[in-house]
């Protein structure tokens, strides 16, 4: 293994996103935020959207950030990061890693336009989406990343739509790097962050981050549920480099979606006395479609 590959594959622990924050036990987003910033290193500016991450990590006067942190609104981290990048260019400062980051509500819904603008303009910014598949900070309401069948407080009978596929939409902007990841594989996630930051231009990393509170599973299942999301085919892991899908994670042993759905309270209504309803079959179809599409 050469030096560069070694560096890419090293798991970094620098505590730039410090412990002692107010996230729930087992919070996938807190774990992801730590991994992302430890991989990025000290020379990084975090532009964060309003949301769980912001709320549990930045109360005055004791934020958890050991790197510069900038927050203004729910829907504008990509635009704020664009401004930071433009300032660094204009002032001839840098180089610096600029990471715009938000949850799925900000990314998929209210901030969607700003992200598209940032990609299209070509800012040298990494955008990280922490996807916990609903508006968790306001009490588990549906977002356009909420999967089919899931209970949320605004889809009390189960969500009837399918998840918006932002990694592919991002790639279609012609940006040089897109990747998906989860928090069960530290090495993979951090390698993707490091790879992204080594590339000039806009980058997008989509991280699945289980939310024990909103998904209704014990906090100690966060990592296991990530693995099940991958092994069922519901959350494909891949990179898109210069428009080409690559480094697709092959599923070692394919798992039926029931095993992913059953431990989660948000899917409980899909099983009547333990018997799966037709929605489960529908979700299996989504998984099968992913397996075929990405050759998982």
């Amino acid at each position: 293994m050469n030096e560069k590959a070694e560096e890419l594959n090293r798991v970094e622990k620098k505590d730039l996103f410090a412990s002692g924050h107010r996230a729930c036990g087992g919070c996938g987003q807190a774990l992801a935020a730590r991994l992302v910033h430890d991989a990025a290193g000290e020379n990084t500016i975090a532009c964060v959207a309003t949301g769980c991450l912001e709320v549990f990590s930045s109360p005055y006067p004791d934020p958890s950030w050991r790197i510069p942190f900038l927050h203004s609104l729910f829907e504008n981290p990509s635009a704020v990061a664009s401004g930071v990048e433009a300032a660094y260019k204009a002032l001839k400062k840098g180089p610096v890693n600029i990471i715009a980051q938000a949850g799925d509500g900000s990314t998929a819904d209210i901030g969607f336009q700003s992200i598209s603008g940032m990609f299209e303009r070509g800012h040298n910014v990494l955008y990280v989406c922490y996807d916990n598949e609903a508006y968790m900070n306001t009490g588990v309401q549906r977002s356009s990343f909420t999967p089919y069948g899931a209970w949320t407080s605004t889809t009390p009978m189960g969500n009837t739509t399918r998840k918006k596929n932002l990694p592919l939409i991002a790639a279609d902007h012609g940006i040089p790097y897109v990747a998906t990841a989860t928090v069960d594989d530290f090495k993979d996630l951090q390698r993707k962050v490091k790879t992204a930051l080594s590339i000039e231009g806009p980058k997008y990393i989509h991280i699945l981050v289980p939310c024990p509170l909103g998904w209704g599973h014990p906090g100690d299942l966060t990592v296991k549920i990530c693995r099940l999301a991958k092994d069922t085919g519901l959350f494909p892991i891949f990179e898109i480099i210069d428009g080409k899908v690559t480094n697709v994670r092959k599923i070692p042993v394919k798992v039926p979606v029931e095993e992913y759905l059953k431990p989660q309270g948000r899917f409980r209504h899909l099983f009547k006395k333990g018997v799966p309803t037709e929605e489960v079959a529908e979700i299996q179809k989504i998984a099968n479609h992913n397996i075929e599409r990405f050759n998982l």
Binding site: C47, N76, A79, V80, S82, G83, A90, S114, G117
Partner: peptide, 17 residues
């Protein structure tokens, strides 16, 4: 930019930098 909302957000970020 693609909106006034973003224009204001860009100058916010740039000023903060």
């Amino acid at each position: 930019v693609e909106s006034e909302f973003t224009a204001a957000s860009v100058v916010l970020g740039a000023s903060a930098a």
